[in-house]
């Protein structure tokens, strides 16, 4: 069951406790347990005891409804992109995207593949990119720290960008997803 009403444009309501909100959000980033490419393997040492990302309040959640962060961990095929869009739209605001590896930036070693996207930013809004092929868990931690910093400063506004420019993203998505059967929006 989902609601397919197009979301309203976000309004900036400068609440007094906004800073406090951001601080709280930054320190409890919950990830949707969803791996799209080879980088998903780097998340295993990250959430187990070797690097133990719970030190930073980062945890894996089984459903998008409970989480804040979606990690695009590497190459993204068109078929997966469709699922990623559904997952991303179901995450509650505010939501962030962490993109790992060369593939999400400009196609990486799959730049000439017939079925993987090259520029992730065209289809969903990315907040932080982590360079590497794949980035080591330490680099992913650095990516999270950067994301936290950005959230605390109130600059991680990819989710607002997505809502404001929904037509732009939809157009790009529809261009490459040929059998488009997604609802207008899925909450």
């Amino acid at each position: 069951m989902y609601c397919n009403k197009i979301p309203d444009k976000p309004v900036d309501n400068e609440k007094i406790w906004k800073k406090l909100d951001d601080l709280a959000r930054a320190n409890s980033l919950w990830i949707t347990a969803y791996g799209t490419g080879c980088g998903a393997i780097e998340l295993r040492p990250l959430h187990t005891s070797r690097f133990d990302m719970e030190r930073f309040g980062i945890a894996m959640r089984p459903t998008p409804r409970q989480s804040d962060v979606l990690i695009i961990s590497g190459y993204l095929s068109v078929k997966t992109l469709k699922r990623v869009i559904r997952v991303y739209e179901q995450i509650q605001d505010p939501k962030y995207i962490l993109a790992l590896g060369s593939c999400t930036i400009d196609g990486g070693m799959y730049f000439d593949s017939y079925n993987t996207i090259n520029i992730l930013d065209r289809y969903i809004p990315v907040d932080v990119y982590v360079n590497g092929c794949m980035p080591r868990p330490e680099a992913v931690i650095d990516g999270f720290i950067l994301l936290m910093k950005k959230i605390k400063e109130g600059k991680a506004v990819g989710w607002k960008r997505y809502k404001e420019n929904l037509e732009y993203y939809r157009k790009n998505q529809r261009e490459i997803i040929r059998n488009w059967d997604l609802p207008d929006y899925n909450w």
Partner: peptide
């Protein structure tokens, strides 16, 4: 096909 469909950033 990739360049036409997915473009390139650089």
């Amino acid at each position: 096909y990739s360049m036409k469909t997915y473009g390139e950033r650089r």
